[in-house]
């Protein structure tokens, strides 16, 4: 079996904007978009640039737009597409080359929410945490930082300063952790105009999340926390 991939190529040293290039690749039932890209790079055009590593949907490197939807290349299969398949770099990020997006803004946003356990107790013993307490945040700790949710989020597309689904989910992950005492330090970021209130609950981020974290829910739980924080702030001396 053969299929055609239409890849948006962009070389900043030559092009002003991306342009499509067609490639025909052999495939069977198990061929992923990543396999197809690797075939192209190895057999047809070694200059094709993309990121990849684990090929098992855990490293988060190979996010691309497949027919306009953000997907992990390694977990998207050619068998699920009837006609030609268009592959582009992730939307809403700047494209550095071919399928490689500039993820630095994503990293900056992640770091902005202080995504680490803040706890001033320094005893050298493990904390106690029951499975029930773990379950409160466990889902949100499964983010692989692939960035697909940012490509699904029009608010991030319109305002790149918006912290975005993954960063806000990560903040919520630590805020919900029974071992953490850093919520007060994180709330100013979340309350700000580029924090949780920048979200209008489009909800597409949750649809495209390859790990089904439901980032939209996390962000909107953040709104409840932010509102509570505001009310408490009024009554605090």
């Amino acid at each position: 079996m053969q299929k055609t991939l239409v890849i948006q190529r962009y070389n900043p040293e030559q092009d002003h904007k991306p342009h499509p290039q067609h490639f025909t690749v052999p495939c069977d039932d198990s061929t992923s978009v990543l396999d197809a890209l690797l075939y192209i790079q190895q057999q047809l055009d070694p200059t094709l640039a993309f990121r990849w590593s684990c090929r098992m949907a855990i490293c988060g490197s190979c996010g691309v737009m497949v027919n306009g939807i953000p997907k992990l290349g390694c977990k998207t299969f050619l068998r699920d597409y009837k006609d030609d398949i268009t592959v582009e770099a992730l939307a809403h990020f700047a494209t550095e080359k071919d399928l490689i997006s500039d993820m630095s803004v994503f990293l900056t946003h992640l770091q902005a929410v202080k995504p680490y356990l803040i706890n001033h107790d320094t005893r050298p013993q493990p904390h106690q945490q029951t499975p029930k307490q773990l379950a409160k945040y466990a889902k949100f700790s499964n983010c692989i930082n692939c960035g697909l949710c940012y490509s699904a989020c029009p608010q991030f597309g319109l305002n790149p300063a918006f912290l975005g689904p993954a960063a806000l989910t990560l903040a919520q992950r630590y805020n919900l952790d029974s071992r953490d005492q850093g919520k007060a330090q994180r709330m100013p970021q979340l309350n700000g105009k580029n924090g949780v209130w920048g979200c209008t609950f489009v909800g597409f981020c949750s649809d495209v999340c390859p790990k089904q974290l439901d980032p939209a829910a996390a962000v909107n739980q953040g709104k409840v926390a932010s509102a509570a924080d505001f009310v408490i702030g009024i009554f605090k001396p």
Binding site: Y116, L117, N119, P124, Q125, P126, H127, Q128, Q129, T130, P131, Q133, L134, Y137, A138, S141, Y174, D177, R179, D180
Partner: peptide, 17 residues
């Protein structure tokens, strides 16, 4: 234990250990 204290979500027993 260090990792636990940095936030690693280790699986737990019912009593929280």
């Amino acid at each position: 234990v260090n990792l636990e204290r940095w936030g690693c979500p280790w699986s737990r027993r019912e009593d929280g250990s």
